[in-house]
Design a protein around this nucleic acid. Structure first.
Length: 921
RNA sequence: GGGCGCAUAACUCAGCGGUAGAGUGCCACCUUCACACGGUGGAAGUCGCAGGUUCGAAUCCUGCUGCGCCCA
């Protein structure tokens, strides 16, 4: 793209975006090498929350990545050593399920038929073939990540680190194995963590069942929602304060259907208000019952196997599914006359997030992390301010959760993942935990050892990422250069849905492990520098236009790639940025995106306009200069008012953008740029530049100066915009330099400097004068519309102003008024104006001279409306000014402001009154 | 049950103690040689309800109503 004629009239993002996305990656523009010795540029480091390797890009990713990319590009352009590390997560359950499904679709082999090794080979094959899909999509978004550092959580470098972390925790006594109640997913046949369980409201039944006393002296009725588990009951609990049952505590009951004898115990957990007040205790199949069992030393009887079928060989219920068993048990109880009542009951059922099956609390051997010591440090890190949350509110949520944290079950009965480095001894039943495969049992020396089959929770490995990606543990005991240069990372940008899954775990694990790693200079590390990141920015959830959460089942998922194809990546990025205000979710609106596509088109057409004028200048032999550093220079002091004004406005906008980005206010930053570019640069500056640009040859100096300002301000605006809209700005920026015959100063606009407000000349006088002229122009335009002056017809105006400079401004800028408001001539009046075709502001009166009769009723209505408005305003102001308390207590500038406002309103009121009278005459 | 958040123009959202704002949409006019994905002008809100604090409340506090989320 070189000349205006070669540019398409409308911007077509698809024509350029893929080209630049590819260019950025191939040129390795965003690779961040380890700093050379003596290079002390400030680092800005972020980790991409690794998407699941099986994932497809969704709007949440796009928001997350758009925000991270804006920040990375901004920091990079601000001269920092910006590093954004990408990667993908092996996503244990999700990936294993996906490949199993694929196997099922292909033929008959199941995972189990294949065997562990062959299956994991299959998964690796799958990963190699399809695992890059999501990162391909990221490239399309223009994410300026360092691809040279891309990781996968099961890489050869990361896996040993995971093993090392596990072994160390074990050595420190923070890993234990034991039989505990876990959330068991009978479909996936693995334990899952508390976080992977969701609650669902369901209507079930509450069964009242009579348990007879063993001595035949009576009975007790228990209430339960899960009668089938009575096969595993080992007690009945009643509340110690419950007078109905107090006498029965200690007595034995005969458990129906099995004939086993079980005790009645007193325990606070039994709620006298609920059901009958007596509760059956099944320690092996309910977490609360498990706790009761521990308190009363009750045996735990597992009656369900890993597929949730009854596992009681010899019993008539053996082999029945848990729900079938329930029906059978209920039927049998009824037959024995022991079923007292059945009531409908609303209850919450635990459901597996991954498979959707009802979770079966199950007693099994699992590996746990003793979490409290880690949580304590993690709480301290945030309390002490070493980690800052934005919005701050999330710190509360974080403390709430961390304060009630439970030990973390980290073993998963899966094949895809980091296999736990523990070996079971067949002889002594001892466990050997080791970094490398041991030859013999460390306890008894037996060679009959086999490795633990469980793998680690995926979140365990991703929780280690902030330090493992930078080379922990150091291979030779020396801290890696990456670690020295980039840890701790500066910021984590993420959705709050993984606040506990990932964010909290990273904080816990990083604080724990990094505290042991000395600083680069050898001094001990404190918690302040052990943290994984210094700040966490939590963004909103992207919903559909109706505020509904996007989900596959609802079919309301918006595919970012689809939207990008329709509107362009830049427009979508800008939409997300402009809607990303903190605290509220984003209801993604296409209408908004359409608006920003129009914005991109506007930017494009300014380029066409500028190129056209550069061509004209070339033909006329006028120099075209692009000089970014000159924009602060005093050479502009003599420039026409609009040029001095636009520089000041650019300066102001730049400051706003920098400040907003610092505060993570993407919305404010985006709106400031939008408003400046369209509302000021295009609507005013460009139009006024047309007045100055004259290639006829008489006023070359003004033309040269204006064209230079136009090009240079536009170039600065492109840099300002480039973190938000990297594609279109890249395209135009290169073309702009080509057009003025200069080599691009960098390989990419992304490698140039982000503007600073001080780089543009401020001029308060120009801003005040220009504001006044704008008011005058808008007034005249309004009057002309009201009076029905045809668009093309120019009219003379009369201006009255008590303030002399205003009158001078109007007459000396007649050319501006002619262009912007079709004014054919300016006359200055010596007295206030009123009557037909007049409009008044606090600064001036203006009258449009036009012979056409005005629409009297319409004008009367408008004036009456204004009059009423001024009257109300005036009354309110006068009332307040009469209030002594206000005068006494309000700050002076407020009081003065109100007085000034009252005076102005009074003036306008009088003028409007006079105009109305004149009309009625 | 515990905790957190949100209610502002038709829609989507800013503002969070000093006279109500933006984008989209709507109405009218304009094919002016960058752009009709455009230009110009305009209409549109007792800031969920009720109290309180304050000279002054959309903004702070309390309660209520209605939504939403998180944890039990």
């Amino acid at each position: 793209m070189a000349g205006a004629n070669e540019l398409a009239k409308a911007y077509d993002p698809s024509a350029i975006e893929e080209k630049w996305a590819k260019y950025w990656v191939e040129q390795r523009l965003f690779d961040t090498p380890v700093p050379a010795a003596g290079d002390h540029a400030k680092a800005f480091t972020m980790l991409l929350p690794p998407p699941n390797v099986t994932g497809r890009l969704h709007m949440g990713h796009m928001l997350n990545q758009a925000e991270m990319d804006i920040l990375t590009r901004w920091h990079r352009m601000s001269g920092e050593r910006a590093l954004w590390v990408p990667g993908t997560d092996h996503a244990g359950i999700a990936t294993q399920m996906m490949v199993e499904k694929q196997l099922a679709a292909e033929g008959k082999t199941t995972r189990k038929e294949l065997g562990r090794e062959a299956f994991t080979d299959k998964v690796w094959t799958w990963k190699k073939q399809y695992g890059g899909a999501i990162t391909e999509q990221m490239r399309r978004l223009g994410a300026s990540v360092d691809w040279s550092r891309e990781y996968f959580t099961m890489d050869d470098t990361l896996s040993p680190a995971v093993i090392e972390a596990f072994v160390r925790l074990h050595e420190q006594g923070l890993v234990y194995r034991g039989a505990y109640i876990v959330n068991w997913d009978p479909k996936l046949q693995t334990a899952v963590s508390d976080l992977e369980v969701e609650s669902e409201e369901r209507i079930g039944k509450l069964y009242h069942v009579r348990y007879p006393l063993a001595d035949g002296s009576g009975s007790i009725v228990v209430a339960t929602t899960r009668p089938e588990t009575m096969l595993g009951d080992t007690a009945v609990a009643v509340n110690p304060t419950d007078e109905r049952y107090i006498a029965l505590v200690g007595k034995m009951l005969t458990l129906p259907l099995t004939g086993r004898e079980i005790p009645i115990v007193a325990d606070d957990w039994a709620n006298p208000e609920f059901g009958t007040g007596a509760v059956k205790v099944t320690p092996a199949h309910d977490p609360n019952d498990f706790a009761i069992g521990q308190r009363h030393s009750l045996p735990s009887l597992s009656i369900l196997d890993q597929t949730a079928k009854v596992d009681l060989p010899g019993s008539k219920y053996h082999g029945l599914d848990r729900f079938e068993a329930r029906e059978q048990v209920v039927a049998d109880l009824e037959a024995f006359g022991l079923l007292v009542a059945v009531k409908d009951h609303a209850m919450t059922v635990p459901v597996s997030q991954r498979s959707g099956s009802v979770i079966e609390p199950r007693l099994s051997d699992q590996w746990f992390i003793k979490i409290q010591p880690l949580a304590d440090k993690a709480i301290e890190a945030v309390k002490e301010g070493h980690i800052k949350f934005t919005p701050e509110m999330y710190a509360k949520t974080y403390f709430e959760w961390m304060g009630n944290i439970h030990d973390w079950c980290i073993s998963r009965q899966l094949w895809w993942g980091h296999r736990i480095p523990a070996w079971h001894c067949a002889d002594c039943k001892g466990i050997t935990v080791a970094r490398t495969t041991p030859a013999v049992c460390s306890k008894c020396g037996s060679a009959e050892i086999t490795q633990e089959t469980d793998v680690l929770d995926t979140w365990f490995s991703s929780g280690l990422l902030p330090f493992t990606v930078f080379g922990w543990p150091p291979p030779d005991g020396q801290m890696t250069k990456d670690m020295a240069a980039f840890y701790p990372t500066d910021l984590l940008v993420t959705g709050f849905d993984i606040l506990f899954f990932w964010v909290a775990r990273m904080i816990m694990l990083s604080c724990h492990f990094m505290l042991d790693v000395p600083m680069a200079d050898g001094t001990p590390r404190t918690l302040k520098d052990a943290v994984p990141f210094r700040e966490v920015y939590i963004h909103a959830l992207v919903r559909d236009a109706n505020r509904e959460k996007m989900s596959k089942t609802k079919g309301n998922v918006i595919d970012p790639i689809d939207i990008i194809k329709r509107f362009g990546t830049d427009a979508v990025r800008f939409t997300l940025a402009s809607m990303a205000s903190p605290g509220t979710d984003i209801a993604f609106s296409e209408a908004r995106t359409e608006g920003y596509r129009a914005f991109a088109n506007k930017i494009w057409n300014v380029a066409r306009f500028i190129f056209m004028n550069i061509d004209r200048a070339k033909e006329a032999g006028i120099a075209t200069k692009l000089c970014a550093p000159c924009l602060a220079s005093e050479i502009w002091a003599e420039a026409p008012i609009e040029t001095r004004w636009i520089l000041a406005r650019l300066s102001h906008t730049t400051n706003e953008v920098n400040q907003s980005l610092k505060d993570y206010r993407f919305d404010e930053a985006a709106n400031a740029i939008y408003q400046f570019f369209w509302g000021e640069f295009c609507d005013w500056y460009l139009e006024l530049a047309k007045v100055r640009l004259d290639f006829g040859g008489t006023s070359n100096a003004a033309t040269e100066l204006t064209l230079g300002a136009l090009i240079s301000v536009y170039e600065a605006a492109l840099r300002l915009l480039s973190p938000f809209m990297p594609f279109i700005t890249e395209e135009i920026w290169h073309a702009l330099y080509a057009a003025v015959g200069m080599p691009s100063p960098a390989k990419s606009i992304a490698l140039t400097r982000f503007p600073l407000g001080s780089e543009f000349r401020g001029d308060a006088v120009a801003v005040a004068d220009m504001t006044m002229l704008q008011e005058l122009i808008v007034s005249v335009r309004g009057l002309r519309k009201e009076m029905g002056v045809p668009e093309k017809e120019a009219t003379p105006i009369v201006v009255f102003a008590t303030d002399a400079p205003v009158a001078t401004l109007a007459s000396t800028n007649a050319d501006m008024l002619a262009k912007m408001a079709r004014v054919s001539g300016v006359t200055l009046a010596q007295t206030a104006l009123s009557g037909n075709g007049t409009r008044s502001t606090p600064g001036f009166d203006v009258q449009v001279l036009y012979e056409r009769v005005i629409d009297v009723p319409a004008e009367r209505e408008r004036l009456s409306k204004d009059l009423a408005k001024y009257e109300m305003g005036l009354q309110a102001a006068e009332k307040q000014l009469a209030n002594e308390a206000f005068i006494g207590k309000a700050p002076a500038h407020i009081v003065d402001g109100l007085k000034k406002q009252a005076t102005e309103t009074k003036l306008l009121f009088d003028k409007t009154r006079a105009a109305l009278d004149a009309l009625n005459r």
